[in-house]
Design a protein around this nucleic acid. Structure first.
Lengths: 334, 334
DNA sequence: CTGTTAGCGCATTCAG
DNA sequence: CTGAATGCGCTAACAG
């Protein structure tokens, strides 16, 4: 079973390779008869076009790249499922560029990957998922006209799909105030990213609207990871007993889990002593029965490919922004 | 910033394209002086070879495919990290073929993906992770001389890296008998795959060696998923109280988690009423403090690429089998 | 050591 | 409507 090229098919069908190519791309103007003849030859020879050759001629690869930090995160996996779903409908391939921020032998390979993507032309476009892209990096894509869409991030000059974090934080906070909590703590992630800023705004807005007090000592800024959640919660537990909050809103599930550890270590429990709500709806949160804000991860991935493929096909610079709504998912931590 | 080809570099450096190609592939026989000249031109023009063209000429793509069912599984994610690590060292790309077994609009796309991989030639070889490949499918790879290595599965005619499941099951069981358990239940996955068979064998062997009883009513065969674990545990809880086991060994963590739910629902708890040990060491098991058998997932991925890349480069049919050792990870469920 | 040429497999002119 | 020629960007074999 040797490799069969378009020439073999042409010979088998007694036509020129041009004709074969035409039926392959079901270009117009091929008589039904020869078309059938060629199709039959293709089937007989089990011919399938070589992706490299086609890519070279067409200047299109039929695959997209996805740039992501830490494939390991559950958030990413869910998004990936959506991406796969969208890609499959279009018979496109996915090449994965997993950016590694903490690799010992290489501080970050982000730059290297971007260079490769931009010059090697192995992919027709890229989806950047939860990747803080600098303006400079984004401009490089624009200049080289390599379609780029941001997933779970927002930048006005580029197509992006993201979630309304302000609304998400408000939903969480509203739920807590509706439960009559008067002193609510907020364990936030970074404040130099959109997510952190918007969630902070949503939290405070909801509090004001509910006429509930805002206590600076209960508002902590850290990181979106578990350790940070743990540390911030410990600080709160170090406050005088009478300053304790009755509820805690964490900006990520994984922070909430860290906070939970601190709470348990201190001999308290959830929801008896503190109500706790997280953010993201990662798989773990289900098992820990954590009330949380669910992000539409699958849909983000699916929408992302849609935007990207459209952009690739239209070759246009149309910028589309899609904002998705997060949902409150009530479980047993409040 | 237009696209720059090898011709531009040649012109810039006042040499022929052959020379440029030679320094690119640091082929021998290029004078140091011209080499330097070309390198400088490359840098000045920010040139990088086009992957498609190079692939076409070389009949090598510089990327491998990975075939996997359900990207969503934590097991796969860990393996993927190892794969990525190995690939990065070699500057190769990864294209992901996520086989979907339960997609509504398409019973299984496995066949389609295999066809594509084999004919499109977009990848130089493939890593099949936790994919039950039929002998027929494997032979197609062999016939077309597309390197294939199995990860977490074993087939004598092809390179594979897998874990000694018999040893793993024995380690788990030995731990339980050492804890003096006399009635131990086993919640197994399928019995028509190597994993299930070997773990069953390991379980029974360990029991015999420890002179501990083997009770058929405590040995259940189901599936490796959570629902199955839940169901099997319920069946056990339906036994007369005096037939209850004192310990349960589940063939996967996720089954153990299902079993845990059944146990909790029935008003019992772990480790007070039952000891429980799982298998895999997925992330969840850490949070649930489940004692388990840890599989070297990262290493499997890393080893897998190594074997694959060797096979691609040597173009040889050398078959390498690597068996890895699982480890007992003691936590608080026993 | 280095420039030139001929494919790699396909899509797309351009003539018939 | 269809066959032949040209080029996509690069490597490798062939002459110098």
């Amino acid at each position: 079973m040797e490799k069969v090229t378009i020439y073999d098919v042409a010979k088998e069908a007694n036509v020129g390779i041009g004709t074969v190519s035409r039926v392959l791309n079901n270009s117009q103007r091929v008589s039904d008869k020869t078309k059938k003849k060629v199709l039959k030859a293709i089937k007989r020879l089990k011919y399938q076009p070589n992706a490299m050759a086609r890519g070279l001629a067409l200047q299109k690869t039929g695959s997209i790249g996805i740039l992501v930090p830490a494939v390991t995160s559950h958030f990413f996996i869910e998004v990936l499922k959506g991406v796969q779903h969208g890609l499959e409908e279009r018979d496109m391939d996915l090449v994965l560029y997993n950016v590694n921020f903490d690799d010992s032998y290489n501080i970050s390979n982000k730059e290297r990957y971007i260079n490769r993507i931009l010059s090697e032309k192995r992919v027709d476009g890229v989806l950047a998922i939860t990747m803080k892209m600098t303006e400079d990096e984004i401009n490089r894509f624009k200049n080289l006209r390599v379609p780029l869409v941001l997933v779970n991030d927002f930048y006005e000059k580029i197509s992006s799909v993201f979630v309304d974090d302000l609304a998400g934080a408000k939903k969480a906070t509203n739920y807590l105030t509706a439960l009559n909590h008067q002193r609510i703590a907020f364990l936030n992630g970074c404040m130099d990213c959109r997510q952190g800023q918007d969630r902070m705004k949503g939290f405070k807005t909801a509090l004001l609207e509910a006429n509930t007090g805002v206590y600076d000592e209960l508002i902590k800024i850290g990181d979106f990871n578990k350790e940070s959640g743990y540390e911030m919660m410990k600080e709160i537990l170090d406050l005088p007993r009478e300053d304790y909050p009755t509820a805690i809103f964490a900006a990520s599930d994984i922070q909430a889990i860290g906070a939970l550890e601190a709470i348990n270590e201190a001999g308290y429990s959830v929801p008896e002593d503190f109500s706790l709500v997280g953010y993201d709806n990662i798989e773990l949160s289900k098992y820990l029965k954590l009330t949380t804000i669910a992000q539409p991860m699958f849909e983000m991935g699916k929408l992302g490919v849609e935007l990207l493929v459209d952009s690739i096909q239209s070759n246009g610079d149309e910028i589309v922004q899609k904002e998705l709504e997060p949902e409150l998912l009530i479980r047993e931590s409040c």
